[in-house]
């Protein structure tokens, strides 16, 4: 580039109304891709933080909550993942998917959390958070749904952390085995095996319960 060499001196006297407000900036952020937002963060501009949070917090929080079954830990995980994203923005490569990177940080956090012996003890918080039942469902269906939720949560806890990580990312986050392999730091073959074993366990756990239901219904 060739900027003019001479000094251009001029005065700024009045302030105009043209400077964009925060809300304009926020609106503009919506148009930017994940990669563009991260480029700003990498340049030391943290103003995209809330936009990135809004795009991914729900997925991160739900993953952590299902993984750890502890809402307090899920909150901490979410907080720390996004802070880490700002602090270590330079480790994010523009050609990667932001979701994959964020899930890598989250999964790491969750694994660390489980490794601490104290946390394993208070691991299963038996609180079941349910959404209000949609009105079109019959009471039977609602009851069945709630029972299913409890069973699934229990069945998920019975999995090994590796299997749980793999099945949560595959079933609820819709990630490919290649992405999961990157997040979990293993081969795609290992992901395939983990998901398969997780499904085998879940199938048995859930089918057993269902069988019981049928007997009850038949009486």
């Amino acid at each position: 580039m060739k900027p003019p060499r001479r000094l251009l001196a001029w005065a700024v006297r009045n302030l105009s109304k043209m400077f964009p407000s925060k809300s304009t900036e926020k609106r503009e952020m919506k148009h930017l891709s994940d990669q563009e937002l991260m480029r700003l963060v990498q340049a030391g501009d943290f103003s995209p933080a809330s936009e990135i949070y809004d795009r991914y917090s729900s997925r991160i929080y739900n993953f952590a909550y299902r993984f750890l079954r502890n809402s307090e830990a899920a909150e901490d995980a979410t907080q720390e993942v996004f802070v880490k994203m700002l602090k270590h923005a330079n480790q994010f490569h523009g050609d990667a998917k932001l979701s994959t990177w964020l899930f890598s940080i989250t999964a790491n956090w969750c694994r660390d959390y489980l490794r601490k012996a104290d946390n394993r003890a208070k691991d299963s918080e038996d609180v079941l958070v349910t959404l209000p039942a949609p009105s079109e469902f019959s009471p039977d269906r609602t009851l069945e749904q709630r029972e299913n939720q409890l069973r699934i949560q229990k069945a998920l806890t019975a999995l090994t952390p590796e299997q749980r990580e793999a099945i949560l990312l595959s079933r609820y986050q819709g990630l490919s085995y290649a992405e999961i392999a990157q997040i979990s730091g293993c081969s795609e073959g290992a992901v395939k095996t983990r998901v398969f074993r997780a499904m085998e366990t879940l199938k048995k756990a859930l089918a057993g319960e269902r069988g019981g239901d049928r007997c009850l219904n038949a009486i």
Binding site: S58, Y65, L131
Partner: peptide, 8 residues
């Protein structure tokens, strides 16, 4: 059935 687990 896994789909019955709600988003929190």
């Amino acid at each position: 059935m896994m789909g019955d687990l709600p988003e929190v």
